[in-house]
Structure formats: C-alpha cells, structure tokens
Amino acid sequence: MSKKFYKLESKNLNAFYGSFHALKNINMAMEEKAVTAFIGPSGCGKSTFLRTLNRMNDYIDGFRVEGDILLDGRDIYGRDVRVDELRKEVGMVFQKPNPFPKTIFENVVYGLRIQGIKDKRVLAETAENSLRQTALWEEVKDKLDQSALALSGGQQQRLCIARALAISPSVILMDEPTSALDPISTAKIEELIYELKQAYTIIIVTHNMQQAGRVSDYTAFFYIGELVEYAKTKTLFTSPKHERTQNYITGRFG
C-alpha cells in the first residue's frame, strides 16, 4: 500500500518560548488543496503552530522547535532551507489587513519586486491575475495607482490575499483573517477561501466556530498546547470524540 501524500506534516513537534512549553508533541498531516481549520481557546497554541509552518516565530527571542515539519516531504527547519524561499511557498494573511502605504498595484507586486522581477508585462499580468482571483479586480482596476489605504477593510484584506497569491505559493496560512471585518466582507473572504482551495492548500486559524464549519474540510482542536482532536469538520461538529472538544464547540468551556 502506497503511503498517502500530505502537503504538510508535523511530526513530534514541540515548541518553546523560553521555558514555556507552547506546543506538545503535535502529530498531524494536512491534506493538499483542502482547507484545514485550527480552533481552540486563546493561548492553546493554534497560532503558534500556524506560525511554525512558515517559520514566522524564528525571530522571537527564546523560541525554539523540536521535531519536524515537512512541506512536500521536506523538513522546513532543515539546514539547507532558506526562509525566504520557504515563504514563497507558504504565504500568510494576518488578522488585521496590513497593506503597505503604497499604491494598490505596488502592494500586489511587492513580492515580485523583492524577487527582482522588473518586466512590466509580467508585473501587470500577475497583478491582474491575483486581483481577479480575490474578486477585487472589477472594484479596483481603474484605481490601481491610488493608495491601498483608501480601500475598505474588507477590500484591504482581499488585497493582502492577492499580495500573498502574487508570488504563487502552494500553501496559504490565514490567522483569523476575518475577525476585523463586517459580515459582508467576511462572507466574501469565505467565498474566496472556498474558491482558492481548488488550487491552494489553506490553513486557517479562527475563533469563529461557524466559520470553521462553513469553510474547512478538516478541523483541529487545540487545548493548552496539545492537539486534542483532528477530524473531518462535519464529524467534529456533529459527533466529536472527546468531551473537551464537545465542551468547547458547544460553548461550555471552563
């Protein structure tokens, strides 16, 4: 029997902030071109785990990891891995939209410029493609040279997703991408996630349980640094195996 291919795998992963043991022996495999949601109360380790997936925590003082994280079977904490190369492969979208104080166009092609791409045609095509993928093109095509900061919060977040897509990653990490948005912008981002999973592997941290239910294929529940339960989303939300999971998702925690 051939071994199933997983886009991302975490093996015996432990993470520490100084002496604080933030992640305890996490073993999980994430499927390609699917949406995996991480849920759990604040401080449970879900964001730490998300950030270890593209080494966002590397520069935090006292932070260290033990164990492996495999991207396409290759350890991302290996000596031969360059972090900037890794982040081309694993993009990230944050809680608050964080466009740069530049034009809309420059925001989208920012990653390409860093890579040294100067060809105007390539930049323009990439910008249009990325903005179309995030359903923003029709809204901004006539004002690409205006400041990104003039966009609404929901548009800014979609712009940030477009910026992440422009460098053609295969994995997109989202850390509570809609927690600062109104319901309509939230719905648009959720629609977008649904579309994007055809081409990308998406990992999302969310505090909104219904959102996890709506957008994800798999859900992982974390509690005080441990992975308590990881299952198909429809299973986890209808018949969770662990009482702790049930208490959390039904709002009877603590």
């Binding site: 349980m209 239910g213 939300f237 209808t238 018949s239 998702i249 039904t250």
Partner: peptide, 9 residues
C-alpha cells in the same frame, strides 16, 4: 444559537 454536536442532536 446555531447548536452543534450534542446540542444539535
């Protein structure tokens, strides 16, 4: 309340 799990059942 959008109940889930045991509540939904």
């Amino acid at each position: 309340y959008t109940p889930v799990a045991v509540d939904l059942r």
